[in-house]
């Protein structure tokens, strides 16, 4: 046979992992991402003639528990109709019994890829503000994300910002004694039973890492947002693992990072949930204030810093006052002479 091209090899490798879509309205195009428990494929919807992303479990489903969780994830996300949250289109079963769901296919890059050194801090903070809007909406509907990190934030071709991978999201009202985590991403299959943890260690809030489900609430996502802000400021995750290691202040990495945004970041990343922002809106308010050059609640300024910030914000006024004073002094000298 003719030699396979690199593209063909790539396609065939994806194909071996591809689900059997016979009996559905979808055609495989290619694999988009593979995690430990689920794989996402780009598929073509024949009925609506559009491309969508299809997520399907790739691990053995013992006892049907994962199917329930996959459905739960789909149901949770389907309730959240917001421009910053990827919409779910359809849920179904493959011929082999596995549950899948389809969602909007987002063409773009993750925040991890987007946050290059060429981007300005205000530009990246504005992305985080959009994330806050989506999170605040989810929280208002009683849903916690619990796995916020740069690779779960997509920036679309038209600048739209979407929060992805709600695989371990849960309803805030869920009782902790029952399994309440949607599966289907890179994480272990169980969570929220005391002593167990789900999420990404480097971005995981201490109460999550310690398996303390009774402490998990909106402030757990505030911690995740703090982790994303830390990444924006330093290019690194706040921690190297899930331990309770002290977080190195961002300015240790780069002294040019403004103190006010560092303070916002560190408050969001406080180990004790009571010391964090009480909700996403308060965190977003401080981001707004930072971008507007105003004082932020996380950072008590000295009088000099306040004057310095006012001066920076009102440079034209300051210049005019200085020019006026200079003219007055020169005038006085001239008269005196």
């Amino acid at each position: 046979m003719n030699k396979l091209s690199d593209d063909q090899v790539r396609h065939l490798r994806d194909l071996v992992d591809a689900p059997d879509l016979s009996g559905t309205r979808y055609e495989i195009v290619r694999r988009l991402a593979a995690g430990g428990m689920a794989t996402v494929f780009l598929v073509r919807d024949r009925e609506l003639e559009r491309e969508v992303a299809l997520k399907v479990l790739t691990v053995a489903d013992q006892g049907g528990e994962l199917v329930k969780r996959m459905l739960r994830e789909a149901q949770i996300v389907a309730r959240l109709e917001h421009p910053g949250i990827v919409p779910i289109h359809d849920v179904g079963r493959l011929p082999d019994g596995r549950v899948f769901y389809t969602m909007k296919y987002v063409e773009g890059v993750t925040l991890e890829q987007f946050a290059s050194p060429a981007r300005t801090l205000p530009e990246l903070v504005r992305v985080l503000q959009r994330v806050c809007e989506a999170l605040a909406f989810a929280h208002a509907h009683g849903v916690l994300h619990r796995d916020l990190k740069p690779s779960n934030i997509m920036i679309g071709a038209f600048g739209e910002v979407l929060v992805m991978d709600w695989g371990i999201a849960r309803r805030a009202s869920d009782t902790e004694s029952t399994p309440n985590v949607a599966a289907g991403n890179d994480h272990p299959a169980t969570d929220t039973a005391p002593g167990m943890a789900l999420g990404t260690p480097a971005y995981m809030a201490p109460e999550q890492a310690l398996g303390r489900p009774e402490l998990i609430d909106q402030r757990t996502d505030v911690y995740g947002l703090g982790g994303v802000l830390y990444f924006i400021l330093t290019g690194h995750a706040p921690k190297s693992g899930s331990g309770e290691a002290e977080i190195i202040p961002p300015r240790t990495h780069d002294r040019k990072i403004p103190r006010r945004i560092e303070a916002i970041c560190l408050r969001a990343l406080a180990a004790d949930p009571r010391e964090r922002y009480p909700d996403v809106t308060s965190f977003a308010d401080d981001l707004d204030a930072f971008l507007a050059g105003e004082s932020v609640s996380a950072y008590p300024e000295t009088i000099f810093e306040r004057v310095g910030r006012w001066t920076q914000r009102n440079q034209l006024v300051v210049i005019l006052i200085l020019v006026y004073l200079l003219v007055r002094v020169l005038f006085l000298f001239w008269r005196h002479a």
Partner: peptide, 13 residues
């Protein structure tokens, strides 16, 4: 087409 492709891909796997 869908069924035949699914069959061929299953075999290939």
């Amino acid at each position: 087409v869908t069924n035949h492709l699914a069959l061929a891909r299953r075999e290939f796997r």
